[in-house]
Design a protein around this nucleic acid. Sequence first.
DNA 1: TCCCGTTTGTGAAAGAGATCACAAGAACAT
DNA 2: ATGTTCTTGTGATCTCTTTCACAAACGGGA
Lengths: 216, 216
Amino acid sequence: MARKISESTVRRLSRYLRRLRELDARERRSVVSSAGLAQSTGTTAAQVRKDLSHFGSFGKRGQGYPVRALREQLEEILGLTQRWRVAVLGAGKIGSALLGYGYFTQRGFDVVAAFDSDQSRIGLDLGGVRVQPLSELKRTFEDRRVAIAIIATPVEAAQQSADMAVGAGARAILNFAPVKLDVPEGVAVREMDVTLELEGLCYMLTTGGPAADDTE
Amino acid sequence: MARKISESTVRRLSRYLRRLRELDARERRSVVSSAGLAQSTGTTAAQVRKDLSHFGSFGKRGQGYPVRALREQLEEILGLTQRWRVAVLGAGKIGSALLGYGYFTQRGFDVVAAFDSDQSRIGLDLGGVRVQPLSELKRTFEDRRVAIAIIATPVEAAQQSADMAVGAGARAILNFAPVKLDVPEGVAVREMDVTLELEGLCYMLTTGGPAADDTE
DNA sequence: TCCCGTTTGTGAAAGAGATCACAAGAACAT
DNA sequence: ATGTTCTTGTGATCTCTTTCACAAACGGGA
Ligand SMILES: NC(=O)c1ccc[n+]([C@@H]2O[C@H](COP(=O)([O-])OP(=O)(O)OC[C@H]3O[C@@H](n4cnc5c(N)ncnc54)[C@H](O)[C@@H]3O)[C@@H](O)[C@H]2O)c1
Ligand SMILES: NC(=O)c1ccc[n+]([C@@H]2O[C@H](COP(=O)([O-])OP(=O)(O)OC[C@H]3O[C@@H](n4cnc5c(N)ncnc54)[C@H](O)[C@@H]3O)[C@@H](O)[C@H]2O)c1
């Protein structure tokens, strides 16, 4: 049943899940239609149905999808039935913000460690996590079985940080530094570059109205 | 001039630009081949050439692309020949990090204002910017001609923040809150959701990675 | 001048992803 | 039971993106 699922599909699944959690916990809705989900996630009804159909059939014709069950299905599909242990490398401005981010826990991620090279930051307690020196990185990754590393070190140190994380057993990296990281086969990387997104917005602004659909 | 350019192309252009700036400023290279650019931005040589060819022909056959000139061309294409004024809404953890982010200035963005609803945060100086009350938002956006708003308020306040920004004249929004924003036609939005990216990594780890179980 | 190794620019082909359109299923009223 | 209404699931189709492949251009050397 594990076919080739595109990254864009996975992204949308994550959005559906985000919305389903809201519907379930906050809005107490018990069913939702593909059209409803599409509306609140910025896609089309057909796209929602197609995305879900890759993994099975979860809805009832005429009724829609049961919110709770679909949420659980998506968690299963995305691999979120287990909790994931995460470490933050670089306890500076962005690293501190992430360490204090309350949502991770709710969403299945446990930030269990933080590392910094700056002596003056070591020992700090940030969001309940003690900042450790790099010398303890490998051991901590192994002991606590950290699978995901978030890189929040300066650009110049980012590749080195990635190497350390991978060397210590990390199998996925979320990179906040604006550089392309080289990692061995089998290590997953996602990049978050604020500037890149801002530039995308500029392009839209500059090339006349962004969603100028039909007007030519 | 250029017709429908896809978002993925624009994203790559931004990556090329990021790399070209490195090559120009740090590594002092004066030419680069499509293969070289591809290598350091995670794509293919053919893709680089095709992307650039949508806007003109900037290279010399047999030689490659002149780094400096191509950088300037990309800045032109992306609309980065002007500086853009940006405001941050929500001066909390992530908002503070962004206000202290030094790279924006280098990349053509000026963070000129910050807003918060919390009385105790108003008046703070974060990264050289004074945190203002929401009551001053509209006026400041107009006076300083702010085009881009970065939303860093809690999920529950995000839509409201977006409405205020748009009402005050913002034409683009970079949204850090994990919700889909509804904005009027003509306003560009990009979303940065850390959790969504982490979930994407989990999916990869769960399917492609660990014990490659192709159990049908 | 002509040849040779190199790298671009770009139509054409292949591949992916999104959209369409509709039969099939489910609930409910009569 | 039958009809009505609603919404899913999915093959077929369409559109967009990426990859391929090669002629055209460039610089250097003989
Ligand atoms: N501040 C932001 O809002 C922001 C936004 C987007 C991206 N980023 C990126 O995130 C990264 C960090 O930015 P920041 O603003 O938090 O910078 P920062 O200087 O505040 O923090 C960086 C931290 O990393 C530590 N560090 C340096 N080398 C290290 C190493 N080899 N191993 C471990 N730790 C090391 C430093 O001691 C420092 O504490 C940068 O790459 C930046 O481009 C920052
Ligand atoms: N902390 C992180 O690392 C992180 C990472 C990714 C996304 N986010 C998202 O960014 C947003 C902010 O997160 P945070 O961790 O900085 O929270 P935070 O509570 O530290 O900061 C939020 C700030 O927004 C202010 N605020 C509340 N309502 C407002 C309004 N209507 N207008 C203006 N300001 C208002 C609050 O006073 C507070 O100062 C959230 O949506 C969060 O999900 C945070």
